[in-house]
């Protein structure tokens, strides 16, 4: 066995790489919370009922208006005083997801608001149920608009998971830091970590591109044919062309 001082990054490589699945799982779990929270807050803020709209607005402003690290520490250290004991994992995923959801709620709200009111009115006049209106009329027009900003949110989330190293979760950044302190050399390990994050972000980017095609197909909009829009398109839908095409 070599002395600690003689060890190189190679010795710790498996330790570092084991952080990749953990970081990806954290990203995925937090993003699920993000999407759920984004829809709840977004639809809440768009609600006609003040008793729903105002609390939703308040929560969103609090989440957006204070730092994620402070929220994380608060959930980790202060919540237990109120008798709510969350595991670091649960607290971390909740804070990151709610925080991202607060931002994403504006995307959701804007996407729903961009569907012309006439669409809902026509659907009511045809006696379509509220659930059908949402699922088959409104969502197919709102969802494609949300996908590109969702791509941003997803990659943001990947990078934000590094914050969880501060509450003892041993994801990629945590391991990188631990290895740096053992090696007493920041250069190689941080360079490699940077590349790993970049590769993961690239993969997520590709995933979002696939998702965009899939969502557009589900929504009944073809993205591949490149059909030229007629001048009438704008009159039936207030949604601009660039919001759908690629």
């Amino acid at each position: 066995m070599r002395y600690l001082a003689e060890r190189t990054l190679g010795d710790y490589l498996p330790l570092l790489l084991q952080g990749i699945p953990i970081t990806l799982e954290l990203t995925l779990a937090s993003t699920v919370v993000l999407v759920a929270a984004g829809f709840v807050f977004g639809l809440g803020r768009g609600s006609r009922n003040r008793l729903i709209r105002w609390p939703a607005g308040f929560v969103v402003e609090v989440l957006r208006g204070s730092s994620a690290i402070a929220q994380l520490f608060w959930a980790f250290y202060v919540l237990p005083y109120f008798g709510v004991e969350l595991s670091p994992l649960a607290a971390g995923i909740a804070v990151l997801g709610l925080n991202g959801g607060a931002y994403f709620s504006e995307v959701v709200r804007a996407a729903f608001a961009s569907v012309p009111k006439g669409q809902t009115e026509a659907a009511i006049a045809l006696n379509l149920s509220a659930w059908f209106r949402l699922r088959r009329i409104i969502l197919p027009q709102a969802l494609p608009i949300m996908v590109p900003p969702f791509g941003n949110a997803l990659i943001d989330m990947l990078k934000f998971t590094a914050l969880l190293s501060l509450v003892t979760i041993q994801e990629l950044a945590y391991r990188a830091d631990a290895i740096r302190s053992v090696l007493e050399d920041a250069g190689p390990v941080y360079s490699l970590t940077l590349l790993i994050y970049f590769a993961m972000a690239l993969a997520l980017s590709a995933l979002v591109q696939w998702l965009e095609v899939a969502v557009n197909r589900w929504a009944g909009r073809s993205t591949r044919t490149g059909r030229k829009a007629g001048p009438q398109e704008r009159s039936t839908s207030g949604v601009p062309r660039w919001a759908f095409g690629r």
Partner: peptide
Amino acid sequence: QFNLFPHM
């Protein structure tokens, strides 16, 4: 404004 469903 017709209000046809544009995705159908």
